Simulated assay, not measured.
Amino acid sequence: MTRRVLVTTDYLRPGDEVDRFLREAGLETTHLPMAGRRDPARLVAALAGIEGALVANEPMSADVLARAPELRAVVRTGVGYDSIDVVAAARLGITVSNLPGVNANAVAEYTMGLLLAGARRLVQSARGVANGAWPREDGHELRGSTLGLVGYGASARAVVPLARAFGMHVVCTTGVTVRDDPAVRFVELPELLAVSDYVSVHTSLTDRTRGLLGESAFARMKPTALLVNTARGAIVDEDALAGAVRSGRIAGAALDVVREEPLPPDSPLRGVDGIVVYSHLAGQTAEARAAAGRQGAEELVAALEGRAKFAVNADLITHVRK
């Protein structure tokens, strides 16, 4: 019997390289691109008879997973996997994999783009010109400033040489025990917040990091500081951030990710001068997408054969679905 797999990542299409690879591996593919929010019932229906899934930020809750009795492996075409209940998956014998570092270069370059845009107020300038004005406010140079990295994963490590090339000093706070980068000074979070001109978030979303940057964190930052987030929106308390920027407690924020995507009409981030929200594009380059699709397909085939390389819940699984 042919095994069936579901592909929801929106840039993967029937007949492309990934689709051909999966079919050559003996799998029957079904594509249901995720574009915005999706009713969980529709996802459950799509998972009927599916053994493996190659997914975007699909919200795969415990309820959804429990209602997909044939599902054996889920692979995220990216790094973050907080949209998947990995504990529930493990309990059901489903492996969940991500692709660590697959888009690190893309995220690092994008981070530098946000830093430059924020330092020189490029979005505000372009907006002003579009509205008939001719803004001429001073910006700031990155050279000589301090960049604080929250997290030391692949994307943060890729940022370091780029920031150093711009003449920035780099500090970092992390729980990683191996800290062998002489270009980085490792500090605790309170010191990082106090000394940084730019704070860039690169940590994963966990119970510990949810709401990590809130009112008390913003109170420690310089009033001239800019917050950049390319990690996960829920790491930042958005109400506290909006209040901090409105009051001048910090200068502004460039956010590629937000708590709820797409950004809802009633978000506290809307209409705040100094806060610019982008549409989750940090890892979206042609090169990163090609790598993610290819590596994701390889991991899915491997997982279905019981040899997943990047399973994030392997240590929790006590049985594997047959």
Rank of each mutant, 00 (worst) to 15 (best):
A156S: 05
G118W: 00
E191F: 12
L147R: 04
Q124F: 12
G132V: 01
L71S: 14
E141I: 03
V86H: 03
V102Q: 00
R127W: 02
G128D: 10
R127I: 01
L92N: 06
P69Y: 14
G153E: 14
A89L: 14
P100S: 05
Y110A: 14
A165T: 04
Y110G: 13
A62T: 04
A156E: 00
L71V: 13
T111D: 11
L149K: 15
W134P: 00
P59M: 10
A165Q: 06
M168K: 10
A106K: 10
V74H: 01
L162P: 07
V129I: 12
A66N: 03
M168F: 07
G113H: 14
N103I: 08
T111F: 13
I94A: 06
G128C: 05
A89I: 14
L189S: 03
D180K: 05
V160R: 06
E141S: 04
G128K: 02
E188S: 07
V87S: 14
R143Q: 15
A117R: 05
C172I: 06
R136A: 14
F186I: 11
G167V: 10
V107R: 09
A108C: 05
D85T: 01
N98G: 06
G101M: 06
F166C: 04
F186L: 09
D63M: 00
S155W: 08
P161S: 06
S97Y: 07
E70K: 13
G167H: 11
T77L: 07
I94E: 05
Q124I: 05
Y110H: 15
A62E: 04
E70S: 14
E191G: 12
A183Q: 13
L149P: 12
L147D: 00
R127T: 02
A68P: 05
L92G: 08
V171K: 00
P59Y: 10
V102F: 03
R121C: 13
A90T: 01
R121A: 15
S196A: 05
V160H: 07
M112E: 04
S83P: 00
R120C: 09
I94H: 04
A126F: 15
A117W: 08
R72N: 10
A89C: 15
G153D: 14
V87D: 15
R164F: 06
R120A: 11
V176M: 11
E109Q: 08
V107M: 11
T177E: 15
Y152E: 08
M168S: 08
G167N: 14
A68M: 08
A104V: 01
T111G: 13
L189N: 01
L149Y: 15
H169F: 12
H140A: 13
G139W: 12
G153M: 13
L162Q: 09
N105I: 14
S61F: 05
A126Q: 15
S97R: 05
G128F: 10
A154D: 13
D180Q: 08
G175T: 10
Y198L: 06
L115D: 02
S200V: 03
V102N: 01
V96Q: 05
V176P: 03
R185V: 09
G167W: 10
R67V: 11
A130Q: 14
F186W: 09
V187H: 02
T146R: 03
L116P: 07
N103H: 12
S83N: 08
V79P: 04
R157I: 09
F166Q: 07
